[in-house]
Design a protein around this nucleic acid. Sequence first.
DNA 1: TGAGGTATCGAAAACGGTTTCGTGTTAATA
DNA 2: TATTAACACGAAACCGTTTTCGATACCTCA
Lengths: 342, 342
Amino acid sequence: MKQKITLKHIARELEVSISTVSKALKNSDEISDDTKEKVQAFAKLYNYKPNNIAVSLKNKRTKNIGVVIPDIVHHFFTTVFRGIEKYANEQGYNVIICVSDESFDKEVINMEMLNNGSIDGFIMSLSAETQQKNDITHLKQVVDQGTPLVLFDRVTDELECDKVILNDQEIAYEATKKLLKEGRKRIALATTESYFNVSEKRADGYRQALNEYGMEVDNDLVLVLPYNDIQESMIEDFYDRAKVDAILSVNEIFAIQCISVAKKRGMKIPEDISFIGFTDGLLSRYSNPTLTVVAQHGVKMGEIAAKMLIDRVESEAEGSIEDTYRTEIVQATILDRESTIN
Amino acid sequence: MKQKITLKHIARELEVSISTVSKALKNSDEISDDTKEKVQAFAKLYNYKPNNIAVSLKNKRTKNIGVVIPDIVHHFFTTVFRGIEKYANEQGYNVIICVSDESFDKEVINMEMLNNGSIDGFIMSLSAETQQKNDITHLKQVVDQGTPLVLFDRVTDELECDKVILNDQEIAYEATKKLLKEGRKRIALATTESYFNVSEKRADGYRQALNEYGMEVDNDLVLVLPYNDIQESMIEDFYDRAKVDAILSVNEIFAIQCISVAKKRGMKIPEDISFIGFTDGLLSRYSNPTLTVVAQHGVKMGEIAAKMLIDRVESEAEGSIEDTYRTEIVQATILDRESTIN
DNA sequence: TGAGGTATCGAAAACGGTTTCGTGTTAATA
DNA sequence: TATTAACACGAAACCGTTTTCGATACCTCA
């Protein structure tokens, strides 16, 4: 096991000072070409790499960004993360990831773990519990301390910071209109508990479209499903009590399960009933019939979030403080597949 | 924006030395109870948290572990990562993740980025390209430098280090035997190019079972599919040229696609043909019929990998060098679902 | 009374870099 | 020849901790 080589070693070996070595490696013009060559050759030979930790301590910049997300075994978050990681790496940043597991406490603990110099800024999406409790003192604290923060997807209006969101309401409106244009009369909404910010906005878009077509929003047509542990009977009951000819689902799984039950009941898709779901994951692509979806462009969202964060980090480093926070909106698109009529 | 408070600030304010503050906060018995109380109260009041970077520089330990995986939008890797993150966090470690994107170059660059003091050790799974080229000099370099390294799933025999793998061959043997016991006579193997270590081992298990039942391994029954961009016609052609009554697939997607084509051809599942796939992801659970799978227990694999790494990191820190590398084997299990006869 | 012990604290080195400023040498200029 | 500027380099401070090694003051006991 070879010892990691440091400036000190090089300096001793070449009988020059540490400062000379440091400067020579940076090609400073204070140093003669002769010594530069010597030092650089030696450094290359022994594969010298500056110690990141030492550099970070000196610069007060780590080139690490912290990402806190509710779940990692989850297609949407994964794609966003992909975008973050991609952009960050291109800019020479590393990404430290923590999973809050939809838990408020874990979210708080994770952020405290990271916010002691380990990272230059946060990108995060709120946990379910945090949205439910609506307690964001930990976020405020981070922002107060001057740590840049970018929220994506599951955001909150109570905090002033940079944000990246989907045009949820608008695209839900578009999706619903697409179903209406198919001639659907009894369009259902499959959704989660309402404390999810995004679900609420999607529901708004759904209602807006119905209203525009002069339709009443029938509460019997709203199917609220639990986040986990969905029983088929819930969907059966729903089909029993509500005549339905289309379903807009706030996620992929709900849609797939509704399709599955519909098929068992002998309904023809998309003739008798059509489906649109949010999230362009594997399920939608490989289901039978394939599912028409709202593509959320997670990678793009992640890239934008990373860019916003890094821009802010670097501008703060240069002392030019921009104090206006921005909210970027990613335009979702509808991907037509077999579960709707085209 | 409040300045981050340091030992120096506390020391100045309380008119004691930095060392006293440091010791007081650690409850050292060199310090009187009086001063301890004063210092601790002040620290709590101003929410003092030690700067991680400075601590890392001093201890030469970062409490960060680096994870390099080929893909993040991928169920198996995601679950493994979940296990890593879970165990690591419990032990007070953070996880820095880099995605190699199945590219050799990115893998090398990522590892170089991290291996300059940013992390205490690596957990990784080889990229496709790395396996293909069979070039692992970058890994050897890391190990030579004394950085602990744990390989999982996509490992290599050419490197001595800790490893965590699945009992791929054995479970493929079991799965194939399960199909044989169903009375299947023409069992196909849907697989990737052979340079994937794990695919090769699964193929071995498949052959072993066939041999045990006195069957020839018919090369017409091996369907090699590309990693991306699978055309349905490839599967159509396969069904055309080979009479098949069961398929063992090295992943989920191949199985799902084979099922889809089989259904279109009017084959009854599992009566006419049965399926087993590797990876217990969403697709298998929500497909129609649901897919019998080999569960790889990614979370457990991740936890084991993290434990192996952290154990080694900490034992090295204590100077007690264990020089025997271990290979842990995770036992896969078969989850019976609708695509096979039970 | 003086040696030794204990309690409490501070100075300083160290981790591995970056950066400012000063200094000695040489060469150009008045 | 004396002054000065350019050149090449080193000393030292600094980032925020931890930790070793005194140093002082007070106390105890022979």
